[in-house]
Amino acid sequence: MKSIRFSRRRLVTISLAGVMTGLLAPLQRNARGSDFPGYTESKGVLVDLTRCVGCRTCEAACNLENQLPAPERPFNDMSIFNEQSDHLRRPDDKAFTVVNRYDSGSSVSPVYRKIQCNHCQEPACLTSCFVNAYTITAEGAVLYNHQVCVGCRTCMIACPFSVPAFCYSSAFSPQIMKCNFCYPTRLVQGRPPACVEACPRDALTFGERAELLRIARQRIKRNKGRYINYIYGENEAGGTSWLYIAGVPFNEVGFDEDIPKQPIINYVKDFLAIVPMVLTIWPGLFAGIHLLVKRRATAIDNDPKLAESDHDKTAA
């Protein structure tokens, strides 16, 4: 009997400890609420695919601005578009942005598309990072801090647009490379990113995101038949700072149309919600079961008949 009372006290202690941990658990998930509508002054870029002619000047401007390694072939070498065999180019550790050519079925002439970080309003990379290496600024730029990065590459898994790239070739300081919206060099001063400034055809328009959405709608409305009536990025993954309008269906030019229209973190919340529950309920539950079992065992020790009847029951 004494041992039972001892266990009971232990049960209380364990349960209390569990409750305490459970109470602390909500603190873990910090205040990134789901209803946060985004910063009002958040900036963005509107990409008009009908205007892009694939001159790759944005690639060159980005390379210069971010002091990235020189490309294998010059930026005005258009033959690179002909060599996209099984998989198209993508941003990698040497280029924050690339332009690809698509032979869309709905358009006679080829369509070009620039790829770079879309700077989500609720970035999956940020929410998936376990060392908080990502931050989002009031301007909407999603920034990466290589000083705390462990190199687990979860952000690459999480990014619905597959943008972050890893320096696999570096042994001692491999880091994630991705477009930073030219935040440190330009955005802080309110200037547009280097690619936008370099674009000769205004295929890239820099401005406040809300304003860009208005402009995009207006272009679609004003130029009947020129555009598909859809703004890619308005709701994708909860909304991105970079927005796209195009003259052909988006899936014909490499856009993933199956990307959820809500922030990626929403898919993880179900699991995050069970964490405090497990932390609080499990200790009591299993300590309780243990107590019951132990009590029975003590009872059986005192009266072996109990065990026999129990055995019959299970055998039946």
Binding site: Q28, N30, C129, F130, V131, N132, A133, V148, C152, L272
Partner: peptide, 9 residues
């Protein structure tokens, strides 16, 4: 060093 407590990882 650096905490990302909202992350599953």
């Amino acid at each position: 060093v650096s905490f990302g407590p909202a992350a599953v990882l």
